[in-house]
Each structure stands twice: as C-alpha cells, then as structure tokens.
Design a protein around this nucleic acid. Structure first.
Length: 408
DNA sequence: AACCCCCGCAACCGCCGCACC
DNA sequence: TGGTGCGGCGGTTGCGGGGGT
C-alpha cells in the first residue's frame, strides 16, 4: 500500500551541508538528473533524506541560481509583487529569474520588511502607516485581531470572493450569478465594456462581475451579507425546481436579493445596507466547501485573480485617487459608473478591460494596472495584466518607484 | 580578549494537495 | 477506492559571524 518511504528517519544527517556532501549531490544530479529524489540520497551516497537533498539543490546548488545582493530593480519588483501576492514566495520567485523563493523570503524578512516600515509603510498592507494602523494599534483597529475581523481587510474580502469565484466557476451557479446581475452591475458593464471590450467573450463577464462585487464590499457585515444574498438567490431558485442552467430572470433575482439594491449604491451608502434577512446558507457553504471564517487563502485561478479583486476594491473606495485616463481626482462619493468610465481607456493597439486597480502604497504613489483581454483569453480568466506605477501625473511603466525624500 | 547581543540566512518543520499503489 | 507518500510551499528555527561593550 502506498509508496515506499522516501527515507528512514534513523541515521540521517541534519544541519549544515558539508562541501563533500554538496559535491556528491552535484555530481549525482549532473549525471542522473533531478528525478528519483526518493532514492537519490542512497544512490548519491548521502546520509540525508530526499527532502533535504531537494531543498539543498533547489535553494543553493542549482547552477542557474543568482546569489548575492539584490538589485534595485529586483527590490522594486519584490515589493510590487508582494503588494499583490502577499507572502506567496514561490509565486513571487517565478517573476524573478534565478532567485529562489527561500532567498526572496529571507530578503523580505530581513531587509525589505524593515525598510518599508522605516519609510512609514505597512509591510503587510503596503499602505502608509497611520495612527490607526493595524501594526500600531491592534485594539483600535480590528483588522489584525482575529480571522473573523480580517473581513475588514479588502485583501481578505477579495480572497474570499476569489475562492467563491473558484468554487462557482465550474458550477451551474455561476451561470445564474452571471445572468442575475443587478441593474447597477449591468450598467457598469454597459457603456464602458461595450465600447472598450467589443471582442471580449461574454463568459468573461463573470470575472469582472465578481471583481465589481469585490469593489462594493465596504464592511465585514456587508461582505457576508452580500455573499449570502447572492448565494441564497441562486439556492432559492434552484430549490424551487428550476434548472440551474436556466438562469433566473433578472427581475426575479432583484426581487429575492435584498442586497442587490445595495449593489447599486455608492460606497458611502452601502455600509447602511446591512439589514438583510439571511436564510440558512450552511448547506450551500458546505457544498462549496467555503468556510467564511477560517479559509482565508486566496486562489489563483478558477475565475478571478486576486490582483483583480483586491485592487478593484481599492480603486473604487480608496479616495482620493486620480484616474490616469482623465486626470481626474475622485473623492470617493462618485457613482461607480463614473469611476469605472474614468478608469477605462483604449490605446491604438489594444483594447483593455475595465478591471483596474490603484493601490496606494504611500502618499502620492500608487500602483495602477489594467487587465486587458487578449486572443488567449478564455472563459473566466483575465490575461495580460499590465502594471504601472504613478506619482501624481507622472506615469511609470512597469516600474514601482520607491519613495524618497524628494518625492511627494 | 572575552562576552554578549543582534542579524542574516541556510535548513528544518509542518501542512496540504495530489499522485501512486 | 482509500491509505500513504511525495513534492511543494510558507513559517520558523538556530547556527555562525560581526559588531559593540
């Protein structure tokens, strides 16, 4: 039953590798390749477990590893990627050739983390540290106090919705969800998307729909209630004997979903829309294996990238911010349509999508991105993330600008 | 010169998803 | 089909070097 153990715990060496061990490992892999890690130590004459050999090779001995000081460009890239990906070091490492996830993790923990903090930037949120910053006052600001309270974090809400999207993507519920958008959601996707995305496949609207949902979640309660309402609509409809593929009529959805009306409101109004009669959704949650309070890990695929979700949120409700397209500064009280219209644009070569983000890392600086659609696009995926940074009206392509005393 | 403390980083640990038997 | 191990990942540990006293 099962595989043979990769190693026996007894008699195996731990701790620092010697030059002799390194040579044995290098010689073996050069001759036989990296495969067969289970039996590699024995064949290579090493008293190590396969896992240890793998780590030693992957993090230290591999010939294509670049060691030593990180360049400024690499630092900027790490910071930028960390803002979007969090502590997903392997994902970050994939964007930095010849650097290992372990090295990047160590560099972050020992250098960049502190440097950002010294600059007054929260290394976790990548936002300016303020008097109510989570890192300075956990009691007054609930965002870092418990898993439950993390709902107030845009990132967490986005991750939650990502997970929802991933669960919905292959299911029939997504069909219902997509076709039961509220009028406001439809209006959001009308002018801008009609003009900007003529070639976008219909199915891709699910990703943007969920992005927009993320952008409208202003409070923990609202987050939960909106999710519940949307899911309950779908659940109710199916429980009434409808074929789930045959999505409910739009007005039907509106009738059922209390929070649907809240979705048409501005962000400042949405926080008031919490009085929702919520049915027991535990069966549905269970069917999606979706634990709202415990499962905070984002997902990469299945529908919507976390980058999308997180930053749509930020772009909508973090104010003031400035639209690159129109050089317009928003106060946060504008309608979603107004905001989205200002954030979409065409250039001569490509037609870009409407999901943008505008993360503020510090006063005046922000990261701005446009998610385009390419010919490679297929259902429920967003491709060609183009990332920029901006300071006031200055626009830097693919270059996160670290702040210094001359800026701002 | 000895001791202490801090810091950087290699390596380990534990968990999870998936493949294998 | 279910138990088990593998591989990958992120978090953590602890060793060793350097600086300060």
């Amino acid at each position: 039953m099962g595989r043979t153990p990769c190693c026996n715990a007894d008699g195996l060496k731990k701790g620092a590798w010697t030059a002799d061990e390194d040579q044995k490992l290098i010689a073996y892999i050069q001759e036989h390749g990296e495969g067969g890690r289970r039996t590699l130590p024995q064949k290579a004459g090493l008293q190590r477990c396969g896992k240890s050999c793998r780590l030693r090779w992957a993090n230290y001995l591999r010939p294509d590893i670049k060691r030593g000081e990180f360049s400024t460009e690499e630092e900027q890239k790490i910071i930028q990627l960390h803002a979007f990906l969090g502590n997903r070091w392997s994902a970050i490492a994939r964007h930095l050739p010849k650097r290992t996830d372990n090295e990047i993790k160590n560099y972050w923990n020992t250098h960049l983390n502190k440097r950002l903090a010294e600059m007054g930037i929260d290394p976790v949120t990548h936002k300016p540290l303020g008097p109510s910053s989570p890192t300075t006052d956990n009691n007054s600001n609930p965002t870092h106090t418990s898993p439950h309270s993390q709902l107030t974090q845009p990132t967490t809400q986005a991750q939650l919705l990502n997970k929802l999207a991933a669960k919905l993507a292959p299911s029939r519920c997504l069909v219902a969800l997509k076709t039961s958008q509220s009028p406001s959601l439809r209006s959001l996707s009308t002018e801008a998307e009609k003009n900007v995305l003529p070639k976008r496949p219909i199915s891709s609207t699910s990703a943007r729909l969920l992005n927009k949902m993320a952008g409208r979640l202003t409070t923990p309660l609202h987050c939960l209630n909106t999710l519940k309402s949307i899911l309950s609509s779908s659940l109710d409809y199916q429980s009434e004997g409808h074929n789930a593929i045959e999505a409910p009529h739009h007005d039907d959805f509106m009738h059922r979903s209390t929070s649907a009306s809240s979705l048409s409101e501005t962000g400042s109004d949405m926080s008031r829309s919490n009085a929702i009669a919520t049915p027991d959704l535990s069966p549905l949650m269970e069917s999606f294996n979706l634990d709202l309070l415990k499962d905070w890990n984002g997902v990469d695929d299945g529908g919507v990238s976390s980058i999308n979700m997180v930053d749509t949120y930020s772009s909508c409700w973090e104010s003031p911010f400035t639209s690159f397209k129109n050089k317009k500064t928003f106060s946060g009280s504008e309608s979603m349509h107004e905001v989205m219209d200002a954030l979409t644009y065409n250039d001569s070569d490509k037609t870009y999508g409407s999901a943008q983000y505008d993360n503020h890392f510090m006063d005046g600086f922000s990261i701005f991105s446009i998610n385009g659609c390419s010919e490679d696009s297929h259902e429920d995926r967003v491709f060609e993330d183009a990332t920029y940074s901006r300071h006031k009206d200055h626009f830097f392509e693919n270059n996160y600008q670290l702040p210094d005393s001359n800026v701002v």
